[in-house]
Amino acid sequence: MKEKFVTGVSVTAAGAVPVVATRLDPRDYVGILRARLGIRRDSYRIEPGLYAVGSPDERSEILVTSNYKLTFDTVRANIGGLDVWLLVLDTGGINVWCAAGKGTFGTEELVRRIQLASLDKLVKHRRLILPQLGASGVAAHLVKRRSGFTVLYGPVRASDIRAFIGARYRADSLMRRVRFGFADRVKLIPVDFVSGARYVFGAAALFFIAAGISREGFSIQHALESFFPSAVNVLAAYCAGIVVTPMALPYIPVRSFASKGILAGLALTVGLLPFHTLGGTAISVIAWFLFIPGLASFVAMNFTGSSTYTSLSGVKKEMRIALPVQLAFAGIAFILIIADRLF
């Protein structure tokens, strides 16, 4: 075990167990920043298996988590001073909630890891503390039947683990609720911004071609000279969907994300009026008043996957209505822009 967070080894009846630090070092913070920016986030994982925190013994609690390093770091940074075992499941480097949804943080993997780590030899009790959000992948009663271990669902957030154990495994309703506050939403923006960039490049490419079209035909020279305002508009549409909508989420007074995106897009389009990027003709202005809200709506709709409260049934319903509208807005806008240049 060469991992930097391992500070020693605990020799137990179940074999040698690596002891991990509960204070993050600068490298870990760089890793957190990188993961939040979406840089090599897929391979940000640690070796699954059993770890020790502090000096645990046969009476110590066993906490279960995933092998996404960001998750692992959050857990260990929040349990400094406790003496506990940490059982890390192989979720393929995915956080607990998403992995539970896929079933990789699941009954099967948990039972397998209990056996691989010989937990029955490690401790005298038969309790495991799981993060509450693991529950959509784990059936507690089946784990009990197959392994003899009782699953206790702990709090949603690692910062409440200490209080949960202190309160004899009781979580109050605040510990059990998933939040989606301003900071939670803002944290997601960089990754979403980077991973959705293909929409910007796609739309920008189309408008670059459009910018080169005139009554004399197509010219790259012409495109380069007149593309800048379109690029600003496309970027504004993207930001309306992926920055403004997440930030203003609870304050945009409609429920569907597609509608939230349309309103944010409209607001930004109005905001662009004084900057003369919408073009000099009525047709061009109308075109951008369709395109910007349309793209913003599509991008905002994709934020449903990042949110913590949208249901599959609801997303299906809003997409059925919104997708055709978004496509129509974008299509009509593009035709108007071309027509404006030709006639």
């Binding site: 529950a135 059936a139 009663h141 994709n302 996957g305 809003e318």
Partner: peptide
């Protein structure tokens, strides 16, 4: 998933437009 009596029914899935 965690109801030992199978008393709850829900069509579970991800509420994610990109996934759909």
């Amino acid at each position: 998933l965690n109801c030992p009596q199978d008393a709850i029914l829900v069509r579970a899935g991800v509420g994610c437009a990109a996934a759909l």
